[in-house]
């Protein structure tokens, strides 16, 4: 496998990871961003669970970016495994708002309008990038 091809895949994963972190930080909105908080029995306002889900997305986005950096530095033999890890991280991004740390129950809540679809879309792109990396690597190894 040529060096540019390896770089291209690592760069793609790194870019998607960074886009995820930036989107979660600045563009995807959760209920807390719209001023909706939960009031405890003591009267304290605390964020709803979608806030923590978004924090988790930032963390996974950072992990994906990290995988991208490792892909840029790693040897050719490691590329397929790293692509698989990136695809799994993408799957986590999809499952996060759906199952792991689900968003609020009402479909009209801000988190369901913005954060949830955004996280699923970004997760799907990361899964696709990971799968693409695996398929290309297989083809190259067969040709070798």
């Amino acid at each position: 496998m040529s060096l540019p091809a390896r770089k291209w895949r690592g760069l793609l994963v790194l870019l998607l990871g960074l886009v995820t972190v930036i989107a979660a930080q600045f563009f995807l909105e959760v209920c807390g961003d719209a001023g909706h908080m939960l009031e405890t029995a003591k009267g304290t306002l605390v964020p709803m669970r979608c806030h923590w889900s978004e924090q988790g997305l930032k963390g996974i986005g950072g992990l994906v970016a990290g995988i991208g950096v490792v892909m840029l530095l790693a040897r050719d033999e490691a590329q397929r495994a790293l692509s698989a890890v990136a695809a799994l991280a993408g799957l986590l991004m999809i499952l996060l708002p759906l199952w792991i740390l689900p968003t609020c129950t009402m479909p009209s809540m801000v988190c369901n309008l913005s954060y949830k679809p955004g996280a699923i879309l970004l997760g799907a792109l990361v899964v696709l990038a990971g799968l693409l990396g695996m398929v290309r690597w297989k083809r190259v190894s067969q040709a070798a």
Partner: peptide
């Protein structure tokens, strides 16, 4: 009012 229960909007 805001949230009748957790996360209902």
């Amino acid at each position: 009012l805001a949230s009748a229960a957790c996360c209902t909007g």
